[in-house]
């Protein structure tokens, strides 16, 4: 009967593998060589080239951004994609514009490089992101934060103040003084 048990296990294993297949299919096969896990505090996270504002530094307090940046990006992604809301504060393009890092030759480092701002932590934490399959990982055009600094809160519909700036400035610019 032990052979039957073995086969039963094999069967279960097969079903299990089957469920994991889709994930395995796109996993990177070039595994990194083992190296000592570095404590997080020793990760070199380069200072961004420019700051969103004097008070907050980043577009939201740094603690908040470290923990929840994906929520902001995800929210902005759906707002922009489906509703055409194109505020700059939480746009991925502006993340890249501020946080892009240049190497010794003055070239921007790509996301495959561990010095890339996103890659630094994501490699450390082994969290794979597929943003850059489609999005540019280096700045292409200059920041437009200054010209379109609207939508101060990430959830325009939760907070009444949200987006006042843009709604009010646009008519100001287009109607008489």
């Amino acid at each position: 009967m032990s052979q039957a048990k073995l086969l039963q296990r094999l069967f279960a294993l097969m079903i299990g593998t089957l469920l994991l297949l889709p994930l395995a299919a796109t996993a990177d096969e070039d595994e990194e060589e083992e190296h000592e896990p570095l404590p997080f505090s020793e990760l070199v996270i380069t200072e961004p080239a420019q700051r969103y504002s004097e008070e907050t530094g980043c577009v939201a307090p740094e603690e908040e951004m470290r923990r929840n940046h994906m929520e902001y990006i995800l929210h902005q992604r759906d707002e922009t994609m489906h509703k055409g809301i194109r505020t700059r504060q939480f746009s991925l393009e502006e993340c890249i514009n501020c946080h892009a890092i240049k190497d010794d030759n003055g070239e921007y480092v790509r996301v495959e490089d561990e010095r890339h701002f996103c890659a630094t932590c994501h490699t450390y934490a082994s969290v794979k992101i597929d943003c850059f399959q489609c999005h540019s990982d280096v700045p292409v055009r200059a920041s437009r934060l200054r010209t379109q600094q609207s939508g101060l809160a990430p959830h325009p519909y939760d907070k009444p103040f949200a987006g006042k700036l843009a709604s009010e400035t646009l008519p100001l610019l287009t109607t008489e003084e």
Binding site: L18, L21, P22, L23, A25, T26, D130
Partner: peptide, 18 residues
């Protein structure tokens, strides 16, 4: 059915997004 579905899923452009 499972055999057929496996083919269908693994041919997707993004099987990781099952």
């Amino acid at each position: 059915l499972i055999g057929g579905l496996m083919i269908l899923v693994l041919d997707l452009g993004h099987p990781d997004r099952l």
